[in-house]
Design a protein around this nucleic acid. Sequence first.
DNA 1: GGACCGATGTATCGGGACGATACATCAAGG
DNA 2: CCTTGATGTATCGTCCCGATACATCGGTCC
Lengths: 203, 203
Amino acid sequence: MLEFAILGLLHQAPMHGYELRKQLAQVLGGLRSISYGSLYPALKRLHAAGYVTTDEPDPRAPLPADAPPLTGRRGKVVYTITAEGKERFHELVGQSGPEAYDDGGLFGVRLAFFRHTAADVRLRILEGRRRTVERQREGLRASLSRTRERLDRYTLELQRHGLDSVDREVRWLAELIDRELTDGQPPRDGGADTGDPPAPPRP
Amino acid sequence: MLEFAILGLLHQAPMHGYELRKQLAQVLGGLRSISYGSLYPALKRLHAAGYVTTDEPDPRAPLPADAPPLTGRRGKVVYTITAEGKERFHELVGQSGPEAYDDGGLFGVRLAFFRHTAADVRLRILEGRRRTVERQREGLRASLSRTRERLDRYTLELQRHGLDSVDREVRWLAELIDRELTDGQPPRDGGADTGDPPAPPRP
DNA sequence: GGACCGATGTATCGGGACGATACATCAAGG
DNA sequence: CCTTGATGTATCGTCCCGATACATCGGTCC
């Protein structure tokens, strides 16, 4: 999941780890943040896989000691995405299977990079997510009506609130899907299931 | 967090790991489940700490080989809470500091066991949780109004939905607090922090 | 001038949780 | 009979988190 998000951000511009973390927190929805304990190992993995490069200028460079007034520039490391990294990102961005929406966290990241995602893939992800959350909702409803009597007030309240949240998410997703359908092809008309979508986000 | 939940469940009745997991899923609000990869190591820790015992009858028992028709009874292990475990649980149940509400997951578990929690502690936890979530909400609001223009439609929608969820949680908590205040002490009057709550579990 | 402080910045460590997986028993039913 | 599904115990590798350490920079306050 981090892999996708990092590649997505570096796809837009090279960045320091620190900046990356801030952007990440924003992309993730504001509340969910990413810790350095996840970020740096992830960057290391990406580096090892050849998806990013660093400008680390070899820490033990001789440095003839004749540029002391030169602006510090200590350990700052700028991470840049490579061609392989971009390829990998586009590969990931094209996935529309359950792995893209079964986990809410990954779905959030996918949504945040929807502008890089083809219209048909967007739709499949949104609908897959809706089905997943709907299933959750039904399970929750069933469990709640089954155990309503045996639960104390607080547990009941907890379940009620959970169900309410899930229900709201379903409605939200339905709204997104609706918007996707209505303003994705307002001027177009016949372009049905030819497998070749209007491909709107062509960077 | 698991420690608290497991002790809480075993406090009510001895159980198998399997049953524990099912109950846990219910207590956690239905959507959040616990994997065996967490559960069994947690039970092992609790066992090592002396908070639970097992009826494991020593796997390499001689078994004179004269009871084949005896009902299988393979590895089933029943976990039972000990006196130290109960003590530990009551110690945990008395905590009302930030550790009880800063993490949403733990807060949920605390709520699920509110019937074992003193009224004043309940109130402190609910109010602490509310303050935490309110802070989140304000941060989210600020971030949203700061970056409204620079975000694309999908990211914006994600943030909007997140803010909405948080807002709903605040209102839900306010409702719980209100109910706590109004029907916690209608007949009583002075019975403040005596540690002996009016026992409100009113079904 | 200098002392402090918060933002920027890189990095590791231990621990906890997860998903996947393996294995075993037993009841129900095609 | 034999396959499926529920019950049941347990581990492995991987990921992620919170805490922590360290270092630099631009301010502000006295």
